[in-house]
Design a protein around this nucleic acid. Sequence first.
DNA 1: ATTTAGATGCAAATGATTTGCATATATACC
DNA 2: GGTATATATGCAAATCATTTGCATCTAAAT
Lengths: 145, 145
Amino acid sequence: MLRVRLKQSLADRGYRLTRQRAAILEVLAGTREHLTAEEVHRRVRFLCPELNLTTVYRNLNLMARQKIIGRVDFGDGRARFEARSDHHHHLFCLGCGRVIEIPACPVSIDEVFVRQHSFRITEHQFEAYGYCADCDRPGSEGAPV
Amino acid sequence: MLRVRLKQSLADRGYRLTRQRAAILEVLAGTREHLTAEEVHRRVRFLCPELNLTTVYRNLNLMARQKIIGRVDFGDGRARFEARSDHHHHLFCLGCGRVIEIPACPVSIDEVFVRQHSFRITEHQFEAYGYCADCDRPGSEGAPV
DNA sequence: ATTTAGATGCAAATGATTTGCATATATACC
DNA sequence: GGTATATATGCAAATCATTTGCATCTAAAT
């Protein structure tokens, strides 16, 4: 089960499985949404009412750094977190914030070019923005990618 | 000439060409670097010593919004600006911050998938991270994209 | 030269995120 | 199970990039 695996990964790396960490993972594992620290905090208060926002930040960072969970940046100034930690990308609706996960990585960089510059790529980030069916109304101009 | 064209675009859109705006464009047009607001401010003080950082922000935002200049986000918590405003992408060196511009857009999203979700993509962002020749020393692990 | 909408400077506010430090508590060990 | 101790947590205060309010200034239209 997802939440068991997530909690196990903490123990595996020598981190304590505290009540607050369990609650945070519980929240993330229980949704497919991509939550900000604030949102995690709000939802976690149900399971663990005294949990401090600072602790939420500290643990989301820890877990993202350990690649136990994933962190995404949709360019709106706050990080979002999700239970998935494998390499993938998203469509982000500028209208409602809805997120659709893209199954395959659509990026293929010209290897010759990269080699010419002797650059070693270790990671990349890609996110696409636009409007989902519900938010797409005439009036918001836009050229497809 | 680049700087003339940039300044003209301000006038074309009904914005005043102030001393400070001219200085900001002068700085951006004079380099291929991708500068933070702070960096622009520091360099602009040569041409226009009383120029306020707030004004730098206001104008960089205005010009980026008007697509007169480009804004890039390398995920380190501060925006960078460049004279180029056309669609392109970068390799960002995590060691020294050096930026290499990628000539062709390496992204091609599965159109069938997007259509299935009735999503209309209006823009996307992509940046690749890694180490340039100068910064690449054994010890920093990394899997190619 | 005059007018005035638009621009600037300064100080103070924001908002997300981080840090310092005293206190609390998982887990290793007996 | 009880105890020790390295780790976590909570709270308040600090950061850092960026934005905003407002009084003053100025580019550019007349």
